[in-house]
């Protein structure tokens, strides 16, 4: 009895198609995804005294420092009626989400080498779980922002605090998705390359730091445009900031929560396209790497 080939469930072979992301398979491993998220959350601050308080401490302290340096010393104007502390807090919280997604994903192959060399599951589960557990962390940090917003709102109510969330706040999940896609995409490219060439992992460390300065985290985008116009910043640097998708995202976050900065559908569309593109490129490269990375890592 000759069975024909269509009966085979699957084939293990060296052939590589461009994208063979098996969604059915990923769906079958959804429990693993959630368990990974749970693991990340419950083990992160085990055996620390302050525990989950660390979620709050880091963005708060960074905001305080940024406010001192950039607003009080360097006199960056955050706009009328916008408390610089809130301005920085939302920027840093947003940036943190992106940067933890990026650095976490870019380490996927290296830090999971032990598991990956012993057992198969769709590798993309690991970075996905990282991004998901970061969403939870981001959510907690947003709560902190809300608390401080309320504090400022009450204490400055009779002065000139004009910062208000607007109706575009509905875009919040979409903005988070964009950041996740961007972080995942870039991270997957880097993690795939680092399996063979370790140089990149050194780059990520300070690269992310540098990128923050080019992403309008501690200054409004309009400031850069103004500086380019009056010639104190070279045009190329202006472009770098303006076309950096993260600047748009952070500017957008400030717009929907504090109604400051600029918002245009064109920018949003441009950023969306870039994020999706980078994500797809990352996915393709990641997919090609995951099959045999264990031989080169």
């Amino acid at each position: 009895m000759k069975k024909n080939d269509s009966e085979w469930l699957y084939t293990i072979s060296p052939k590589k198609s461009l994208i063979n992301l098996n969604f059915v398979e990923i769906w079958r491993y959804r429990d693993l995804l959630l368990l990974f998220v749970k693991r990340d959350i419950i083990t992160l601050y085990k055996q620390t005294v302050l525990g989950p308080l660390w979620y709050f401490i880091q963005p708060l302290f960074t905001s305080v420092i940024f406010t001192l340096i950039f607003n009080n010393i360097a006199n960056i104007d955050t706009g009328n009626g916008i408390p610089p502390f809130l301005f920085n807090l939302i920027g840093i919280t947003t940036w943190n989400y992106f940067s933890t997604c990026l650095t976490g994903t870019s380490d996927t192959f290296k830090s999971n080498q032990n598991i990956f060399s012993k057992v198969y599951f769709p590798r993309v589960i690991t970075p996905l779980s990282g991004v998901l557990s970061n969403v939870i962390k981001f959510g907690v940090q947003l709560l902190v922002f809300i608390l401080f917003y309320i504090y400022f709102y009450i204490s400055l109510v009779d002065t000139q605090m004009t910062a208000r969330p607007n109706e575009y706040i509905a875009l919040l999940p979409f903005v988070i998705l964009l950041m996740a896609l961007l972080g995942l995409g870039l991270g997957m490219v880097i993690s795939s390359m680092t399996t063979k060439y370790r140089d990149l992992s050194f780059l990520v460390g300070f690269g992310v730091q540098l990128l923050m300065y080019a992403s309008a985290v501690m200054y409004p985008l309009s400031l850069i445009e103004e500086k380019v116009r009056n010639g104190s910043i070279p045009e190329i640097a202006g472009y770098l900031v303006a076309y950096n998708p993260m600047s748009t995202i952070i500017e957008l976050m400030r717009y929907i929560t504090l109604s400051t900065g600029e918002f245009s559908l064109f920018n949003l569309a441009y950023t969306t396209i870039i994020c999706v593109l980078i994500f797809l490129i990352g996915l393709i490269i990641f997919n090609r790497t995951e099959k045999s990375f264990i031989d080169t890592v």
Binding site: L9, T11, S13, V119, S292
Partner: peptide, 24 residues
């Protein structure tokens, strides 16, 4: 490792009709 899909063969293929779980 090849059977458990941890790595791929350089040449050749494995066809299977069932789910493989590996305990390496």
């Amino acid at each position: 490792k090849i059977l458990s899909k941890v790595t791929t063969p350089t040449v050749g293929e494995i066809k299977t009709k069932g789910r493989i779980a590996s305990l390496l």
